[in-house]
Design a protein around this nucleic acid. Structure first.
Lengths: 204, 204
DNA sequence: CAAACAAGTGAATCATGATTCACTTGTTTG
DNA sequence: CAAACAAGTGAATCATGATTCACTTGTTTG
């Protein structure tokens, strides 16, 4: 007798939540998190504002989830490339390149994820995922130091510094899409030098 | 017959504005820009909220001015040390050390200036002063590249990356004041390697 | 001293977006 | 089909701090 959620309804609800998240990410891709208001999302998704609250208990939950999903894709891409075969410097080089290339491929999104002024909730998530990047780098750097491939250093500090270097150095160039290749290469070399890989042999 | 501002009054007004700015910076030193509300400032300075508006036309002007004054001190300190005699790497090393030491000396302020989530107006100022740091580094790096002391590179990119590396790598350690020396040295070495100075001779 | 004016005051108001809630519409069950 | 319930709605309300403004207090001038 009682009403029970049927599979069809469950699926529709999932689809609706997914549609909302997609619409929200589109808004962020176009105008950063500043463009992601409940009103804007509701009208972009073609629903009433109240409907948004059926799927997210509040704004922070929404923005945090949008940030999390987008950032996880980035972290995963960098993580994947850090696991390739080769020396530690090969891996770090590939990671820097991927980070840069992906940022150039979606500049506004990159800016939103990396540097846009946002509500504290998103900023906390940002900190968390920066640590995730740093943890990935730290592991590889530590291995490189152990094997003698990299100069002795504090892996945790170098890793954080790499994250900062990557993020900051792209902020300016992101709107100069022509310099993409040059910038990517320069950033990669900077990172390699920073962790103590000799780029050009000095002892012929 | 008409009322005209007497030197005494002019001086009092200057003193009042200065007192407000000092009180505002104290609030920021204790709790970041988040703690700097007009209400809090007014009661900290022992005046009514209306009085604050006699000296600053709006909140953005106030916060921006507090940020500007504090940051200029930092930029000047780094700038001064970049002008010392010595090789370009000596200068960059000194700059990294000064940046780090000053951050450790006032951790909450450093956090507020570098990374705290703030209203867009302050964030714009932040961007501006990050560029100022970068410009200082860029000059020194360019000189070093020209003289062959540093590896070939894009000075503007390396400079931005250095700024990012310094800022990011201190975010974590700032509450571990014990590691101050070690962290400072590690950051300095990271920066020197990054710009292509060979820290340890490889050709005996 | 008193007129003329500026500085100081803080309760009241405003601005911006998030959030609620009484109501409407759609689904499920027997 | 109709009862039972959830999803959808958007105008109204709320929350947070900035901002205003009618008023009070202090300074200057002749």
């Amino acid at each position: 007798m009682a009403y029970r959620e049927t599979p069809l309804v469950t699926q529709r609800k999932l689809a609706q939540k997914s549609a909302l998240l997609h619409a929200a990410e589109s808004l962020v891709r176009e105008g950063g998190f500043g463009a992601l208001t409940i009103q804007a999302l509701a009208s972009a998704a073609g629903v009433g504002v109240g409907t948004v609250y059926r799927y997210f208990s509040n704004k922070d939950e929404l923005t945090t989830e949008v940030f999390r999903r987008a950032t996880i894709r980035e972290v995963d891409a960098v993580s994947a490339v850090l696991d390739i075969n080769g020396t530690m410097s090969d891996r770090l080089a590939a990671a820097a390149e991927v980070f840069s290339q992906r940022a150039f491929a979606a500049p506004k999104l990159a800016w939103a994820l990396i540097a846009e002024p946002v509500e504290p909730a998103v900023d906390i998530a940002r900190l968390k995922y920066r640590k995730k990047y740093a943890a990935l780098f730290e592991k590889v750097i530590a291995k490189g130091v152990d094997s003698g491939e990299l100069v002795p250093q504090i892996p945790a500090l170098s890793a954080a510094a790499l994250v900062g270097a990557m993020a900051e150095s792209l902020l300016g160039p992101l709107d100069h899409l022509e310099c993409r290749e040059l910038t990517t290469a320069a950033l990669r070399d900077f990172c390699l030098r920073a962790v103590g890989v000799v780029v050009e042999s000095k002892c012929p």
